[in-house]
Amino acid sequence: MAFIKKQAQPSTEQTQSTPETRDCQSLLKQLSSNDSTERRWAARDLVECPECANALMQRLKIETENSVREVILTTLTRMGDPVAIAGMVDCLRSEDAALRNEVVEAMKQLPLEVAPMMLGLLADPDPDVRIFAVNVLESLCHPEVESWLISVITYDAHVNVCATAVDLLGEVGTSNAIEPLEQLKARFNAEPYIQFAADLALRRINEI
């Protein structure tokens, strides 16, 4: 027994399971296969079929195999087109907590694509959706993040939404946030957590 080199090539089995002629229609069919490996490979290769974003979103909502879900979300994130983004936003309303969290993580990767929808999300009638939108801001590399957060703590009526925004302002806030934070404290003067979080944010901002 020893080292083998001549067989140390990409496995030929792969060619059989994923032939080179993987057109979008075949991949879509495989996305519904009973075999999770086939579904995962289809989801991965569909990145080259942007017109299939909606089909991926629909599959994501019913997919039970974790590895397939992860790949679908990665593919949708790599597509990053309006259909994919709209589908992700739709998933923020899902009752499936795991799916919501996965979508929040995916949206953080798409600052430029998500930005145009952020004002709408932060004004959504559902406070849970507004909280998820603030969660997205947590790692969203976008220059408007601070002003969006200031807008939340200035206008949002829901204490939990404001509390989530204040936590983040403590990390990214600048002197622009000082007055809105003081106003927030006054607006929610009976909420101990808001007092604590706003004071902490103010202290951090003033330390800089």
Partner: peptide, 22 residues
């Protein structure tokens, strides 16, 4: 030198990595 096979792969390119299995 004969024990190791060297190949070019871009991890971000599905067509590059598709054949790497098992």
């Amino acid at each position: 030198r004969e024990a190791v096979e060297f190949t070019r792969v871009n991890l971000a390119e599905p067509t590059d990595t598709r054949g790497y299995r098992n």
